[in-house]
Structure formats: structure tokens, C-alpha cells
């Protein structure tokens, strides 16, 4: 009984310490984002490459997934609204649920699966290969050169892709509202405008930025925890990914709480 209590206490303390460390580390990276010195030519190149790999390369696939998955989702939601006689809530469901909640979530999940996993592995491999040490030996700041461009890329990519996804969903919403409710574009537009709340859009964009920050920061942090053995790579990658998903859930819950309050 005693040992169970001790174990539990130790676990809780470890979790809290790790959480506090992550927040402190995030603060450090966040401050660097606003320092002019951070933006060297080398850092800008990394940033450019990161945006290219995370957003531009994925764009055709992302748009296709958004169109297929988003349209199906919007079709199902509209159908349900019609069946349950909740047509009056059509605009609010479209803006409040699909645009401000589902679209950022869909984007963040796609980017996490594609880029966060890659970043985590890349960092772990660099650590194992002693490339991080190389950077340090040449007095290249790891935070400025490796972390900040990836984190900025995360923020830019999630905000832009999520907005694109929302726009795609709204466009497919036009089609489905016509097919399911026989609604004209003018009526659809009016309902949408009535249901739109700028504060909701701002919260959604802010949430995307937070998502982008953490889904890149956490994998980097865990990747850098690798030892000099190759066997440590899968361990830190799986830990990193689990933590990224936990972070996504926490951010989602917090954003839902802001809506409730």
C-alpha cells in the first residue's frame, strides 16, 4: 500500500516536473522567436525548407483529403440536422463546429502524422549521429537554428492549412446545403453571415497557432532526449508522439472550455 502510494506520488511529481520543464522550454523558444538575431540566413533557409516540406509538398494531398473527408462530414452533419429537425442550427453548426473545431483538428492530425513524426525522428537521428554536438562545436545555437524555424513553420503551416481547410469546407457546404436542403447560395450566405462570430474565428486561429507551436516543439524536445545509441530512437519517437497527442487533446479541451465560459 505504502509503495503504491510512493509510486503514484513519484509519477505525479515526474509528470508535473516534465510539464513544467516543457512550459519553461516553450517560453525560452517563444522569446527567441521575437529576437532579430535569431533570423540568420541559415535559419531562414531552414524555415523555408520546413514550410516547403510541411505545407507545399503536402498541399495536393491535404486539399484532396479536405475535399473528400470534409465534404462527406459536412454532408452527414447536414443530413443529421435535417433528420432531427435542427435546421435552425445549421449556421451555428457549420461555423461553430465544423469551421472552428473540426477543421483545425483535422489539419493538426494530418500535420502531426506527417511532419511531427518526421521532426521527432530527424532530431533523434541527429543526436545519435553527434550532429547536434557538431553544431555546438561550431557555436551554432541549436534553438535558433533547429527549433525556432521548425516551430515557426508549425505555426504558419497549421494556421494557413487549417484556414484553407475551412474555406474548402464552406465551399462544399454550399453544394451540400443545395443538395440536402435545397438552399440557394444567397440563403446559405445569409445564414453563414448571421452565424459568424469574429471572436470565434480569432480563437480558432489562435488555437491553430498554439497547435502549431506544440506539435513541433514536443517532438523536437523528445528527439533531443535520445542517447548516442540507435536503439533509443524508437523509444524517444514513440514517447514524443504520445506526448504530442496528449498536447493536442489538452489544447482542444482548453479551447472548448473557453467556449463554455
Amino acid at each position: 500500500m505504502m509503495s503504491f502510494g510512493e509510486n503514484l506520488g513519484r509519477r505525479v511529481i515526474q509528470m508535473l516536473t516534465a510539464f513544467a520543464d516543457t512550459i519553461v522550454f516553450a517560453g525560452k523558444v517563444f522569446i527567441r522567436i521575437f529576437r532579430r538575431k535569431t533570423y540568420s540566413s541559415a535559419m531562414r533557409e531552414v524555415l523555408l525548407n520546413q514550410i516547403y516540406f510541411t505545407s507545399v509538398q503536402i498541399l495536393p494531398v491535404f486539399l484532396m483529403v479536405s475535399i473528400i473527408f470534409g465534404s462527406l462530414l459536412i454532408g452527414i452533419v447536414f443530413q443529421l440536422l435535417k433528420e432531427f429537425g435542427l435546421t435552425g442550427f445549421f449556421g451555428h453548426v457549420l461555423m461553430g463546429l465544423i469551421v472552428t473545431e473540426l477543421s483545425p483538428l483535422l489539419t493538426v492530425l494530418l500535420i502531426t502524422l506527417r511532419s511531427a513524426a518526421a521532426i521527432n525522428t530527424e532530431m533523434a537521428v541527429m543526436k545519435v549521429n553527434r550532429e547536434i554536438k557538431t553544431l555546438e562545436m561550431f557555436r551554432i545555437d541549436v534553438i535558433n537554428y533547429l527549433l525556432v524555424p521548425r516551430v515557426i513553420n508549425g505555426i504558419i503551416s497549421i494556421v494557413l492549412l487549417s484556414s484553407l481547410c475551412s474555406i474548402v469546407l464552406l465551399v462544399s457546404g454550399t453544394l451540400f446545403s443545395w443538395l440536402i436542403f435545397g438552399m440557394s447560395i444567397d440563403v446559405y450566405k445569409n445564414i453563414l453571415l448571421n452565424a459568424t462570430n469574429f471572436s470565434d474565428i480569432l480563437i480558432a486561429l489562435f488555437k491553430c497557432a498554439i497547435y502549431g507551436f506544440f506539435i513541433t516543439l514536443i517532438p523536437i524536445r523528445f528527439g533531443l532526449r535520445a542517447s548516442h545509441e540507435f536503439t533509443s530512437i524508437p523509444i524517444v519517437v514513440s514517447q514524443g508522439m504520445v506526448n504530442v497527442f496528449a498536447a493536442i487533446l489538452i489544447i482542444e479541451v482548453l479551447s472548448l472550455l473557453t467556449k463554455l465560459l
Partner: peptide, 30 residues
């Protein structure tokens, strides 16, 4: 340093490895 313990960055081409130092320390255009 030139050492086996200070390897080249493996996910960058050789010219990028060399250019990196100037780009980072002297902010030389890419």
C-alpha cells in the same frame, strides 16, 4: 574542429554544410 566526433550534417548536401558556417555566423546570403 575537424574530427570524426564532429561529423558533417547528414541531411544536408556538402556545399550546404560548408556554407552553413558563413550563413549562420556572418549572416551571408544563402
Amino acid at each position: 574542429p575537424v574530427s570524426v566526433d564532429v561529423p558533417l550534417i547528414s541531411n544536408q548536401d556538402i556545399y550546404m554544410n560548408i556554407a552553413l558556417i558563413k550563413q549562420y555566423h556572418e549572416d551571408m546570403p544563402k
